[in-house]
Structure formats: structure tokens, C-alpha cells
Simulated assay, not measured.
Amino acid sequence: MAVSLSAAVLLGVLVYVLWRYAGVSLWHIVICALFGFYLSSSTVGPHIANALHSVAIFLSRLHF
């Protein structure tokens, strides 16, 4: 739960920065959000969630 919330906040900030400073139109953002909802409800959704969870575990084990 905490990882998905952190990822959602990070991606939300990234989308805002792209919209504000890179000139991405609002329509592109809406289409990408709709595609994300569609993708998460498909059969690929659990695989994507597992991959993101594995990346989060890998990053948490890194020591700088």
C-alpha cells in the first residue's frame, strides 16, 4: 500500500511537471490516465503490480 501510494504521488508530480514545463497537453495526460485505468483492469495489471513491487524491494535493498 505504501509503495503504490508513493509511486502514485511520484508519478503525479512527474505528470504535473511535464504538463507545466514540457508543454504536454491536457489531452495527452487524460489519454494516458485512461490507458492506465484500462491496463490495470486487464489481465496484465497484476503482472505490472508484481514487477513494480519487485523493483521497490530491489531499491530498498540498495545501500549508498
Results as ranks from 00 to 15, higher is better:
2 A>C: 04
22 A>R: 10
23 G>E: 06
15 V>A: 12
53 H>W: 02
29 I>E: 08
50 N>T: 00
47 H>E: 05
12 G>R: 15
20 R>L: 01
30 V>L: 15
63 H>W: 03
53 H>Q: 14
58 F>L: 07
38 Y>T: 14
7 A>S: 10
34 L>H: 05
56 A>I: 00
29 I>R: 15
37 F>I: 04
35 F>R: 11
64 F>L: 14
30 V>M: 14
56 A>T: 00
14 L>E: 08
51 A>P: 01
52 L>F: 07
64 F>S: 13
52 L>P: 01
20 R>K: 09
18 L>M: 11
60 S>I: 00
4 S>I: 04
58 F>K: 07
45 G>N: 09
20 R>H: 03
47 H>D: 05
50 N>W: 02
48 I>H: 10
9 V>W: 12
41 S>N: 09
19 W>R: 14
56 A>H: 05
30 V>R: 15
62 L>W: 01
20 R>S: 10
22 A>F: 01
28 H>K: 06
16 Y>S: 06
12 G>V: 00
3 V>D: 07
31 I>R: 15
33 A>N: 11
28 H>A: 08
55 V>I: 02
46 P>F: 06
51 A>N: 06
7 A>V: 01
16 Y>A: 06
57 I>T: 04
13 V>Q: 11
59 L>M: 08
32 C>R: 08
47 H>Y: 10
53 H>M: 09
24 V>P: 08
3 V>R: 13
13 V>L: 08
59 L>K: 12
12 G>Q: 12
33 A>D: 05
63 H>S: 01
23 G>P: 03
32 C>Y: 03
39 L>E: 03
10 L>K: 08
8 A>M: 12
57 I>W: 07
22 A>W: 06
62 L>C: 00
18 L>T: 04
7 A>N: 13
9 V>D: 09
41 S>F: 02
64 F>R: 15
39 L>K: 15
44 V>Q: 10
55 V>P: 01
33 A>K: 08
14 L>P: 02
54 S>C: 02
18 L>Y: 09
32 C>P: 00
46 P>M: 10
23 G>Y: 07
30 V>E: 11
10 L>T: 00
30 V>Q: 14
40 S>E: 12
